[in-house]
Every structure is written in C-alpha cells, then in structure tokens.
Design a protein around this nucleic acid. Structure first.
Ligand SMILES: [Mn+2]
Ligand SMILES: [Mn+2]
Ligand SMILES: [Zn+2]
Ligand SMILES: [Zn+2]
Lengths: 143, 143
DNA sequence: TTGAAATTGATAACCTATTTCAATTAGCTG
DNA sequence: CAGCTAATTGAAATAGGTTATCAATTTCAA
C-alpha cells in the first residue's frame, strides 16, 4: 500500500494531458512536499539535499509551481518568502500573527468561510482559494 | 485651505516625538501618496520623477515605511510587489481577485470583520490590521 | 531500441527592497 | 540669524528570493 496514491494519480493525470513527464525528481519532491502542511522551496531543498545532493533548487521551484498548476499546492506569500500549502491537507486554516514577537496562531472559522462564499456569489465569483491574515498583538505583547 | 491637513499633522506629531525631521521630500511624497487608495513604491517613484527628477527610489521606500510606522499607510504584499494602502481612505476594503483575467473587486463586509474580532479575542489578540483576499474566477472567466 | 521532446542542474540574470556612505539639510541653541 | 549636530538624502552597492538560459541527460511513444 503506497502512500500519496491519490495525489500521485492526480499529478500523473495532469502530466499526461500536457505531454509532461513523470520524473524521479518530481516523485521525490512530491513525496517530501506531501508530508507538510506548508513549506517553502528553500526548506524542501535543504531537506531533500540529504537524499539527493545533486537536486537543484531551480528544480524545486519549477516543480512546486507545477504542483500549483496541477492543483496539489497553493502558493502564498508570507513574509519575504512563498509558502506552498499542501491542498490535500484537510483542515484549511488562516493565521493570527503577532507583529511584535512573531507568534503565529492558526485558526479555522466556518462562519467566516461561509460569509466569504456569500460575498463572492454576490459578485459573480467562484472562489478557488483565499487568504485571511489578522495582524496584531498577542496577549503577552500588549503590555 | 490646505489639503491633507489632518494627515500632515499626524505625520508631524509622529516625527516630533522621535526627533525626526519634516523634509521637502517627505511632504512631496505624502502629498502624492494621499491621492491614491493604494500604490506601489515604483508607481510613486515614476509619478514623482516628473516633479523632482532627483528624488531617489530609496527615499520613496524609506518614506513609505515611515508612513507605516506613523499609521498613515499599511503595507500589503500583492503579487510580486508591496502595495501601500492609504489608511485615511475611509471604507477599508478587502479584495476579490480573478486568477484568470486579473480583475479585482473591492468589497466590505461588516459581519466578517466582526467575526475576525471574535476570533482574535478568543485567542487573546488585539487586531491592528488584517488582510483578506479571495481568489477565484469572475463571471466572465468561468466558461 | 530509437529519437524527438521534455527535464535537469549549474549558473547567470532578474526584481524588489534594503544598506552603505559621503554630502546635504533640518531644526534647535545661543 | 549663525553655528552646530544629528537626521536625511541620492547614488550605488548589496541582499534575498525567484526565474531564465543552455548544454547535457532522461523520458516515453513509436
Ligand atoms: Mn479560511
Ligand atoms: Mn477587511
Ligand atoms: Zn506577541
Ligand atoms: Zn476573470
């Protein structure tokens, strides 16, 4: 019983439709990527460097962008870097960020999500993804 | 009757408290900045280059960051650049973005804003700013 | 097995933003 | 108003993250 069966199938389907190839590197990167809820290209690079010291950073970026196109990942600018979210991870969440100490709290709120859908519908949009970040002071930094 | 009286006063107050100076460049940049709801450093630079060809891009960046500290502006990463939002523009708004054609719809939703406050309170945070962006397809791009 | 087309890794290029530093300027102080 | 000191400026260098280039390699359909 192989892991990530479903996501691998999705990727192969995407590749097949566009005459793209299923390479050793893509398999390696997919496997590592799916272990995280979200990760940056640099983080993946350092992690995979141990398994394959010749894997290039450019390949990581190219592959993560490919995953985005295939619907497996979702890019999100966060700070100075891009976080690639693992779409297959259920439990979508948003972020509460302390601008003083950097603390980050992840949260989910169905009511907000529902209202977002309503706003979109009212404007004729169909939402595919979204991003909600609340910036402020955590309890410790308010003093 | 001068324009931007209130914002200029706010800036001067901020400067006064920290031994910072009110310069010709800061006045020029403030004036141009306040004419927009949001703008990038590069856009401001091109616009102001006509009035003062010697104004440096670094000064624009430094000044916009100063405005953020003074509470007049709010930085927001958008695409590959940073948008500086004009806080004095009433009608805070969030964005609905079409990933296909790039169309952007601005909206406000008090219920969402209220729920955000609740989430923050529940986690002991005090929100200072936030960002909500909904990505999807506009009505024209759904076909 | 073969060959065309896609992919890779190394590196250069790119882009936005910040840092450096010598020259200039703002804004007290007397 | 002149003099002084610290803040500010512009130009250019630097930084950091991401993408483009290109020769060598690999995939996969025929
Ligand atoms: Mn959400
Ligand atoms: Mn809002
Ligand atoms: Zn904090
Ligand atoms: Zn559209």
């Amino acid at each position: 019983m192989l892991k990530h069966q479903k996501e691998m199938a999705l990727l192969k389907e995407h590749l097949g439709k566009r005459q793209l190839k299923y390479t050793r590197q893509r398999e390696l990167i997919l496997d590592a990527f799916l272990k995280h809820e979200h990760i940056t290209a640099e983080e993946l690079y350092h992690q995979l460097s141990r398994k394959d010291p010749h894997l290039g950073l450019a390949t990581i970026y190219r592959t993560l962008n490919l995953f985005c196109e295939a619907g497996l990942a979702q890019a999100r600018h966060f700070g100075s870097q891009t976080q690639y979210d693992n779409v297959s991870h259920k439990g979508h969440h948003d972020h509460l960020i302390c601008t003083e100490c950097g603390k980050i709290v992840e949260f989910e709120n169905c009511d907000i999500e529902r209202l977002q859908e309503e706003v979109a519908a009212r404007n004729g949009f169909v939402i595919k993804t979204h991003r909600l970040e609340l910036y402020g002071l955590c309890s410790r930094c308010q003093h």
